[in-house]
Design a protein around this nucleic acid. Structure first.
Lengths: 324, 324
DNA sequence: CTGAAAGCGCTTACAG
DNA sequence: CTGAAAGCGCTTACAG
């Protein structure tokens, strides 16, 4: 076709503001796509990592019409090797896209190399590795959420020292729990709140109640009045408080697990910092779908809001609604 | 067809888990729908009521494929008559559904009667009238959000009295500003916080700076140390604070207007209670669409979260993202 | 390389 | 009342 005819037509297309009918387009094209997810395995049906899966499934159900399918994989939160094994399974599947949590920095980096070799696009969820060639990241800015936690604990704690608890093991510098801790400490440092002394403790294993001893000892010997738990496992501290009848403590943790909500309502936990994990799962699938199937450009980083949840507003965060 | 043949077929349909292709369905059916919105007119391009409109337009753009159109109407925030006039225009249009803010109780009730007579379904946004025959409500639980404001101001205010400011006029009992005030007072009453005395003032008009006088007088004569503004117009108080160089005041208001964010970042305002107005507009259109076009059943009440926003987390609330 | 034809999975008007 | 045919607005394989 002659160039000027072409441009004339495009001109008219523009004038009439023609918008292709996306329904007809996807119906006719019969494209399909296979995705894989690789998330930590929740230790119980109440665990945090069940929540992103809810959002994933919701979006997948909607996208089934578009011929989209997903195969879920998971790995142990205490076993870097299980990440490697399941990452391998993902690669064998040869999916059109992957959504995963780069939980272990080293192992995740290797996996990323393999994905790139096979030209499989990927989206990070929950925590991120910068500039790793990802389509995008869905999750919180962990450092900033630590700052918020610091501010809030500072606000409600007139005196006494503070204990930061990581219920986790194998943490490296990239880990978002470490980033939260860093933000938290920085609140106290940047605002010269040195009337409070800060301590950190790492609890790798909460089977049984043996883990309680060092925490209890720290609380008693170090005049701890405030506690910050860097992940969703703040319910452990709630149990400790009830078992030993501790009172006067101010406690901040993360995420709306049922047991955490119970402790929030009992006023044992004062604030939960939340991040809408179902929405993250939903949005992560949506992002890889838009990239792979619809070839749309999406944002590199979609930071989730840092929700401050108390007894009084918790009821309006519990539901996940994408269906209004 | 014989009954048993029918049931046999339905049996197979069930076994195969047949799901109709919604793309093909809407493409073939060529249904279309005309909706109307009736919102308060924002006093400036920065005003709160521009935000729900953003969400409305976003959803409408997506639904254009489905043959959905919307005609927007608005009314003055100071003129109940303008509500009546524009409600009448809505009725003349004979839309298939209406989304509106029942801003003036009496006038809204009359409008509702007329909508029902014409069998036009409607969705409330921002504030609600209970049991009025609405398809649903999208917005905050205002009373509860008042409680949250009370708690937060209480938390940051060691001593002194509190002034509640309504920048509004013609408020009746149903008004959600009154509900917010009620929740706020109840926080102080229920927790026996009578070391603080509470006062309320109504400012109907903020043209010029004459309105500042009574507020300033109250602050000075009544030992006011904390202020709670029941709507998005807390920036007025910010201006007052800067003009008269007041300091040591603790201020809580509503909504992420740019000027409010500025005062938040300057630490003149300590907390903003927010409600994702763009999402509300988006969801309200979605709700009327699902009801009218898709004949789906939706929830009667979709309470928006009561977001607690500070200097530290505000950056993660500013964007409206339905496009990830 | 170009253009007409078939088909995606439904709905609906219409002939029988 | 029933069932076959046409059509929704696109994509893509294919004949020329």
């Amino acid at each position: 076709m002659a160039e000027d005819t072409k441009s004339k037509i495009l001109q008219i297309v523009k004038e009439m503001d023609y918008q292709p009918n996306i329904l007809a387009s996807t119906l006719a094209s019969k494209k399909s796509a296979l995705f894989a997810t690789l998330f930590p395995e929740p230790p119980s049906p109440e665990g945090y990592w069940n929540k992103p899966v809810v959002g994933v499934n919701k979006r997948i159900a909607e996208l089934r019409q578009y011929g989209v399918q997903v195969v879920p994989f998971s790995f142990s939160q205490n076993e870097p090797k299980s990440f490697v094994i399941n990452a391998l399974k993902v690669l064998e599947l040869k999916p059109d896209g992957v959504v995963f949590a780069p939980f272990y920095k080293k192992e995740a980096t290797e996996f990323i190399g393999q994905l790139k070799e096979l030209s499989i696009p990927f989206v990070f969820i929950d925590s991120e590795i910068k500039e790793a060639g990802q389509v995008g990241y869905i999750g919180q800015n962990s450092y900033q959420s630590g700052l918020v936690s610091g501010k809030l604990l500072d606000l409600i704690l007139p005196e006494g020292n503070v204990l930061v608890i990581h219920f986790a093991k194998e943490m490296d510098n990239q880990n978002h729990l470490v980033q939260r801790e860093k933000g938290f400490y920085d609140w106290y440092n940047n605002n010269n709140r040195d009337i409070h002394q800060l301590y950190t403790i790492e609890i790798p294993d909460t089977n049984g109640e043996k883990w309680m001893e060092p925490v209890l000892e720290a609380i008693r010997k170090k005049n701890i009045k405030g506690l910050f738990v860097t992940n969703s496992k703040v319910f452990n501290v709630g149990r400790l408080v009830e078992k030993y009848n501790l009172n006067g403590l101010k406690i901040i943790g993360h995420d709306l697990l049922n047991e955490n909500i119970t402790f929030l309502k009992k006023d044992i936990v004062q604030f939960l910092i939340c991040q809408r994990p179902e929405e993250q799962g939903y949005n992560a699938i949506n992002k890889i779908f838009r990239h792979v199937v619809q070839k749309r450009v999406t944002a590199r980083e979609n930071y989730t809001s840092i929700d401050i949840v108390t007894k009084e507003n918790v009821d309006y965060y519990k539901e996940f609604k994408k269906d209004i």
